[in-house]
Amino acid sequence: MSAILTFWHKEWLAAWRNYHILILAVIFVIFGIEAPLMAKLMPDLMKLALGDQFSIKLPQSTSSDSWQQFYKNTSQIGIFLLALVFSGTVSQEVSSGTLVNLITKGLPRYAVIIAKYLAAVVQWVVAIGVSFIITWGYTAYYFPDDKSPHVWLAIWPVLLFGLFFVAVVLLGSTVVNSNYAGFLVAALVFASLALLNYVKAVKRWNPIALVTDNLDLVRGTEKITHILPACGVTVAAALVILGVTIWTFNQKRL
């Protein structure tokens, strides 16, 4: 436990000094501000773009549009950006040889993976959480309506998805000695799950439901119980993948 804490501290120092925290903070704060702002400005922007020759009556934006934009940003850009930041976390250390000294000093190999995993999951939660709170604040200010009754319920699946997605990134970074392996493996897994979603029978069990059904959860058109099987699969898969990552790292020559 002490080794995990020591290495976890080192991971945070690395994230801070290598500007990973700053990069994530800037991008996710922008996401948080951009979602409600875009929803607010969209009718005016459309009007400007279309000019006077079209006399279409554009519907007024609602809080639902703001959350739609937020979850689009998060699931289409945000999670891949996080995957990119964590992509070389193991492979970089293995190729540069920085772990050799620490392992010979008694750092257990499993502590490396667990500390990296926990640090990445916390960064995931904080990045998405901060972005969510900013969006929530601005959305409540711009759109004081009742179109989004379950705002707080819908964010949990995204945070839970992080447990699975970070484990996949870490596995990719451990198996392949390339700084982009973690990202590519994660992108490949995400694409495979997206394809799997076309099979109706597995839809409720597919972890990808945790980042695709959020708007329905916000609007209240879908109940959280609908994706509970997917939540269970996500947590179980995260634990299995984490175990496989530790096993793989134990076999790795340093």
Partner: peptide, 15 residues
């Protein structure tokens, strides 16, 4: 009980 010095020690440059 062992101290080890590799031929080219690798460190965390940000520390």
């Amino acid at each position: 009980v062992v101290g080890y010095l590799p031929d080219v020690p690798a460190y965390y440059g940000y520390m």
